[in-house]
Design a binder for these strands. Structure first.
Lengths: 187, 187
DNA sequence: GTTTGCACTTACTTATTAGTAAGTAAGTTT
DNA sequence: AAACTTACTTACTAATAAGTAAGTGCAAAC
């Protein structure tokens, strides 16, 4: 079964977003799975190998998200997007991009393109979504869609990080302001 | 002399913001200073001790910043604030709050209050600055000053992180949009 | 029914880490 | 001049890390 492999990726992802890439060991994963250290190395020889698969896992999750919300209105798509960060925050974790940004200088060159691809996909999807919302007058904002997408992503990314330090209230405030920043004024 | 102690704090700070707290060792600092491992332990017995001093160093730097820009207009204060992030980005680093957010779950309880104090001071200073800018009509924005401060900080914090992954252009875009978001419309 | 491949375990190596204990050389105080 | 302090070095320990090599049990293929 590919179940163990899948579980290793999921646990690795959780640990990265909870403690950072350099603060967990294969032993941590092995313990959570009830297997031995070497079993993790069997599936992912090096930590860089695992990290690449975690990045690919996020790319796939993003594709699934796009697919799942395909039929929704631009507004509801943005709501769904914000909700993913609400979930991340509720779990006491941070987002993958934010976590890996700190560790960026310590990871091997081979893994970086996957993270770049993931971040780019995120920005592109939100840019397109905002663009369509603007055209349909469902959404309203002054900046260019690409700029607004960057602002929203950076707000939510940092909100989960700041929530850890200064508390959940600030996450809520940022979240509401993000939504407020794209709502048409007449409604 | 307190020079070595001071240097250890500065190098520690740089390493935290370049690689993350869990990715550097006392050996790294010792090497950069041309001393031995144990010399660092002499000044800071544990890594948590050093981290507390790094946090205090940032609190002091923030106080100095407030003092240095006291006489400036609200607009120029915000420009000065943004410039600190421009510098951070140019150095290829991230901000202390952003770096430590990722490592939050791995640091000892004793260091957290110092980070919380630093983050709170940052938010409070910007909130007050925005408030005054609003009153004097030098600045213009829709959200409450506290909310706007959170948005600006989260934008800049995340911008330095995203710049690592997706490039400096996105930092520039976010930076300009932040400024644009508080400028009076008639100018 | 023997072989092959998969998913591991056992048992290890090597490197790095935080941290300590004891010693030392150069000043500083008394 | 003797005692003390400061800022280290030398030389460690103990723990944990990533990674590997060889072996094992088991299910499926031939």
């Amino acid at each position: 079964m590919a179940e163990t492999k899948e579980n290793i990726i999921k646990i690795g992802d959780q640990l990265i977003r909870q403690k950072g890439f350099n603060a967990f060991s294969y032993h941590d994963i092995a313990q959570k799975l009830g297997v031995k250290n070497a079993a993790i190395h069997y599936h992912f020889p090096t930590k860089a190998d695992l990290l690449i698969e975690v990045a690919k896992y996020h790319i796939q999750k993003l594709k699934d998200f796009e697919q799942d919300n395909m039929g929704l209105s631009a507004y509801k798509k943005v709501i769904a997007f914000i909700d993913t960060y609400v979930k991340i925050n509720a779990e006491g974790r941070v987002c993958f991009v934010g976590a890996m940004a700190t560790d960026w200088e310590t990871v091997e060159d081979t893994v970086r393109p996957y993270m770049q691809q993931m971040a780019t996909m995120l920005i592109d999807w939100l840019t397109t979504t905002l663009q369509k919302g603007l055209e349909s007058k469902e959404l309203q904002f002054k900046e260019q869609p690409h700029t607004q997408a960057l602002l929203i992503i950076s707000n939510l990314l940092a909100a989960t990080q700041m929530a850890r330090i200064t508390g959940d209230e600030n996450f809520e405030i940022i979240k509401n302001a993000v939504l407020n920043g794209i709502k048409p004024h007449n409604k």
